[in-house]
Amino acid sequence: MDIVVNMSSGLCLLLGSFLCLSGGIGIIRFPDFYTRMHAVGVTDTLGAGMILIGLMLQNPDSLVIIKLLMILVMTIFISPVASHALAKAAFRNDLVPLSDRNEHKGGTESSNP
């Protein structure tokens, strides 16, 4: 039983680290703001959730688990909403997504604001 819990905790941590790393590579490598935000926004929530679940499995203390659960719930609520608000603000301020028509790096200013 102990081995199973330890194994699953390690697996969750590993998966979470992998997701976080892929988000990090995404924020460096992707061509414009919206794709970068896609990479970060998606992996941030799931990666953080996986790491927190992995930590929860490591510790039998109930107070610690409740605190971790609070952080997990907050991350699940806050992270997507922050991404949503960020994308909305960028779009409203005329940051145009990269498409076939305008192939400049980092998004360009639109001609019709």
Binding site: C20, I27, A48, T75, S83, L86, A90, L95, G106, G107
Partner: peptide, 25 residues
């Protein structure tokens, strides 16, 4: 490296989430 303001905000947001994880770890 930017280049837009929103990239920087995104970086700060990501950094904050990762700090939460780092401190828990």
């Amino acid at each position: 490296i930017g280049p837009t303001l929103y990239d920087r905000i995104l970086a700060v947001n990501m950094f904050g989430t990762k700090t939460v994880l780092l401190i828990s770890l």
